[in-house]
Computed example of a mutant assay.
Amino acid sequence: MADHPLVAVEHLERAYGSFRALRDVSFELAQGDVLGFLGPNGAGKSTTMRIITGNLAPTAGSVRINGVDLLADPLSAKARLGFLPEDPPLYRELTVNDYLRYCARLNGVRGSRLAEAVREARQRCGLKQMGERLIGNLSRGFQQRVGIAQAIVHRPEVVVLDEPTIGLDPIQVREIRELIRELGRQHGVILSTHILPEVQAVCNRVQIIHEGRLVLSERLDALNERMARTSLRLSLARPVEKTQLSAVKGVQRVEELGEGEFRVHHEPGGEPAEALAQRAVQEGWGLRALVPEERSLEQMFVDLTLKGEAA
Rank of each mutant, 00 (worst) to 15 (best):
G212I: 02
I51R: 03
F83K: 00
A115L: 15
N41S: 13
A117L: 13
F83W: 14
R110E: 14
P5Y: 06
C125R: 02
R253E: 15
A289V: 08
V68G: 07
P40G: 09
I51D: 03
S235F: 03
A228E: 12
N97P: 08
V202L: 07
H187F: 00
E267P: 00
A21W: 01
R50G: 04
L179M: 14
H187Q: 11
V202T: 10
S246D: 08
E163H: 11
A289K: 11
N66M: 03
I195L: 13
T59Y: 12
H187G: 01
I171G: 08
G270L: 11
E157H: 03
R122A: 12
P197L: 10
Q31T: 11
A247N: 07
G188L: 00
L94I: 11
G32L: 05
D221F: 03
V159K: 02
V206K: 00
M227W: 03
R23W: 06
G284L: 08
L245M: 08
A277I: 05
Q299H: 13
E157F: 03
N137G: 12
L287W: 04
V281G: 10
M227H: 06
L114C: 12
S76G: 12
R20E: 14
D69R: 05
G284F: 13
L127H: 04
K249M: 14
N137M: 08
R133V: 12
S246Y: 09
V153L: 07
A77G: 06
F27Q: 12
R229G: 09
D169S: 09
E225A: 14
R177F: 08
K78D: 09
G250P: 01
D24L: 07
G258S: 05
R229S: 10
R155C: 07
P89L: 11
E198N: 04
V7R: 00
V189K: 02
T243N: 12
L81S: 00
R177V: 05
L196N: 05
A275H: 14
E255V: 05
V9L: 15
E163W: 01
R155D: 14
P164A: 12
L38E: 01
E274W: 07
L257N: 08
G67Q: 06
M49T: 13
Q150R: 08
P58A: 09
R113H: 15
E218H: 05
S192C: 14
N224Q: 15
L232W: 03
L84A: 04
L232Y: 01
G308V: 06
A228W: 09
F262A: 02
A115M: 15
R213F: 08
S192L: 00
L75Y: 10
E120I: 06
E10Q: 14
L257I: 05
G260W: 02
Y102D: 03
G250V: 06
G67M: 05
F37W: 05
L35W: 01
N204Q: 10
R124M: 14
V9A: 15
E261R: 11
I176D: 02
R145H: 12
V202P: 01
P156W: 01
A151M: 06
L179P: 00
H210L: 06
F27D: 09
K249I: 10
P40Q: 07
T230D: 07
Y16C: 10
A57C: 08
T230A: 04
I209H: 01
I52T: 04
Q144S: 05
V199M: 02
A151C: 09
E241S: 15
L38C: 06
I171W: 11
L75D: 13
D33T: 03
H11R: 13
